Simulated scan of single mutants.
Amino acid sequence: MMAAHAHSVMSPRAKRNSSVETLRILAMLMIVTSHCVMFTNLDALTLPFGVNKVLIETFLYSGGKIGVVAFFAISAWYLSEAGGVRAGLRRVWILEREMLFWSIILLAITVVVDRSQLGLTLAVGSLFPTVTGLWWYPTAYAVFLLFFPFLVRGLRALDRSAHAALCVVMLVLFTGLDMVMPLSAVGLPGGNYLSFVYIYVLITYYRWHMRPMKTATVWWSLGIGYLMIAVGAVAAGVLFEKTGRLQVLQVYLGKVEFRLPVLMIGLALFVLFERHEFHSAVVNTVASSTFGVYLISEYPTVRQWLWQNPLIDFAALAARYPLLLIPSLIGIAVLVFLACTALDQIRELLFHITIDRHRGRWFDRLSAAVNAALANRKETV
């Protein structure tokens, strides 16, 4: 009774499973750390072959796409019980508000701070961030949201065997062929909504038709996935060290969200965190700003200011103090994450006292007006 009462008086934010929200934070930290590795002056793929290089390629570089899978898996899990065209459009509307806020604010800051970075592409992209793909993830997610009401109805119409067959077909075409025939013309391009459709099909099959995985199985999946990436990094690292060619093979297995090791790790992380439950308003508050962290840190000019900053010289650090390289990469990523979180909390406060007082009301009014207009048209016909 006490537990039930405690749950009933929690705030809406505290009611969210903080274990899953912890994964949301971890996933975004992995994404930011990966960007720190890729976009600073550290050329990780040309570092001298050794433990440091393999660890960076296995855990930090590949962490970006693993984080994407884990981050999207959270949304896919909850969307697997949702549906309706209106619900999908409403989510896109709410997503667009946050994107527009940051794109316009950051465009204005660019105009004031560094006008040399301003161009027509950035200006138009900032005014229309979704359709121009200013940020790839929210654009892909918005398109996915438009498709998902129809997708979930179609998947619900399939029985277990048909859904399983669909998963097998997608696994063979999009993951299997990609592993053995990298230039296959039937694979996914990566970095768009089709990857989310693929992951959603896998997530819904697991949720609707499978028994929960045993914890030992989840850990095995996690370990084998990282082992595959590490073996690929070592083998390709030796090849590159000897020949100076094919350096991209060192991170091939962790470079795209639909590759087998990335799927294994990302989905295993989600299953591992989802099966536990605790409630923390602090964790959930930080997690609520993870999308904002992505928008701020990945805005084109901010990305350049952050990772091309002359004060951040990871190349020199790698040459002089290689043992400090990994802690420094993670440390800088954590600082960026915290700074962007603090900024997005200000945005949340502004939204709370303005447009979120009646969250989605403008969309509801527009939707009602459209429905009324359609109803009147039917009556006149």
Rank of each mutant, 00 (worst) to 15 (best):
residue 1 M to T: 14
residue 1 M to A: 15
residue 7 H to Y: 08
residue 11 S to E: 10
residue 16 R to P: 07
residue 18 S to N: 06
residue 24 R to T: 06
residue 26 L to C: 10
residue 30 M to L: 10
residue 31 I to F: 05
residue 33 T to L: 01
residue 42 L to C: 03
residue 43 D to Q: 09
residue 45 L to D: 13
residue 48 P to G: 02
residue 51 V to S: 10
residue 57 E to K: 00
residue 57 E to D: 13
residue 58 T to F: 02
residue 61 Y to P: 00
residue 67 G to P: 08
residue 69 V to N: 03
residue 74 I to M: 13
residue 76 A to T: 05
residue 78 Y to V: 03
residue 81 E to G: 15
residue 83 G to Q: 11
residue 86 R to A: 11
residue 89 L to Q: 11
residue 91 R to N: 14
residue 94 I to G: 07
residue 95 L to P: 01
residue 96 E to W: 15
residue 102 W to C: 06
residue 109 I to M: 14
residue 115 R to Q: 15
residue 116 S to A: 07
residue 130 T to N: 12
residue 130 T to C: 10
residue 137 Y to R: 02
residue 138 P to A: 06
residue 141 Y to I: 08
residue 143 V to P: 10
residue 143 V to T: 14
residue 145 L to C: 09
residue 146 L to W: 08
residue 146 L to Q: 09
residue 146 L to G: 12
residue 151 L to V: 09
residue 153 R to C: 08
residue 158 L to I: 04
residue 159 D to E: 14
residue 161 S to W: 10
residue 161 S to T: 11
residue 162 A to V: 08
residue 165 A to L: 13
residue 170 M to Y: 06
residue 170 M to F: 09
residue 182 P to F: 03
residue 185 A to Y: 00
residue 185 A to V: 07
residue 187 G to P: 00
residue 189 P to A: 15
residue 190 G to D: 02
residue 190 G to L: 01
residue 193 Y to G: 08
residue 199 I to L: 09
residue 200 Y to K: 02
residue 201 V to F: 12
residue 205 Y to L: 02
residue 206 Y to G: 05
residue 210 M to Q: 15
residue 214 K to V: 04
residue 215 T to A: 09
residue 217 T to E: 15
residue 217 T to S: 15
residue 221 S to M: 11
residue 222 L to R: 03
residue 223 G to V: 01
residue 224 I to C: 04
residue 228 M to K: 01
residue 231 V to N: 05
residue 240 F to G: 08
residue 240 F to D: 12
residue 242 K to V: 12
residue 249 L to A: 08
residue 250 Q to C: 02
residue 253 L to A: 07
residue 254 G to L: 04
residue 255 K to C: 02
residue 255 K to N: 15
residue 256 V to E: 14
residue 259 R to E: 05
residue 259 R to P: 02
residue 260 L to S: 00
residue 269 L to E: 03
residue 272 L to G: 06
residue 275 R to G: 07
residue 283 V to M: 05
residue 284 N to I: 01
residue 285 T to I: 00
residue 288 S to A: 12
residue 295 L to I: 03
residue 295 L to P: 10
residue 299 Y to F: 15
residue 300 P to F: 09
residue 302 V to Y: 06
residue 304 Q to G: 13
residue 307 W to R: 10
residue 310 P to D: 08
residue 313 D to S: 06
residue 315 A to C: 04
residue 318 A to C: 05
residue 323 L to W: 11
residue 325 L to K: 00
residue 329 L to E: 02
residue 333 A to G: 08
residue 336 V to Q: 02
residue 338 L to C: 14
residue 344 D to E: 06
residue 345 Q to G: 09
residue 346 I to G: 12
residue 348 E to Q: 11
residue 352 H to I: 00
residue 354 T to L: 10
residue 356 D to V: 03
residue 360 G to Q: 04
residue 361 R to W: 12
residue 362 W to R: 11
residue 364 D to R: 02
residue 367 S to V: 06
residue 369 A to V: 00
residue 378 K to M: 10
residue 378 K to C: 08
residue 381 V to T: 14
